[in-house]
Amino acid sequence: MALSLMLRNGTKLRGIAGLQKCTFNVQKTQNFTQFLNQDNYKTLSLVNKCKTQFINVAQQSKRNMSADHGKLWTLEKIVSLALLGIVPATFLFCNPLLDDLFALATVIHFHWGLEACVIDYIRPIIVGPVLPKIALLLLYVISATTLGGLLYFNHTQIGIGRAFRQFWCISE
């Protein structure tokens, strides 16, 4: 949870710094384009390329809640990929380490997943500026307590893997 917090805020801060640089660059390139005419295809395309690139970056930082989601995206995919192995392994092998890994990876993964849902559906333009913040805060509380509960279960009882295996043997 702390890791996710740090990552989010890290990208936000870097995004703000980048935004100033970008708007500055956009203004510069726009000034240059005023002097262009058809005779100068080469420089035109070059400057245009720069311009669109800068504008894209600037627009992205304005649109998204966190300016640069690139690094977090990679981490999200790594966790998803890990779950692909951890989830079957947990129920197959009933290992205490796997149980904890399952709890950790699952909670991190669904926290990011639900965060995407909150951002998509609880939008400030529809519900006002306060409710989205409360919803995100609530999500952090839910994710943290869920992780705590799952780890507590793993360490005081038989573990997630064995629990589901026993339940699956119910009809025998």
Partner: peptide, 10 residues
Amino acid sequence: YAVMFSLAAV
């Protein structure tokens, strides 16, 4: 499911 399981465990 995960949230309910965790709540039940506690």
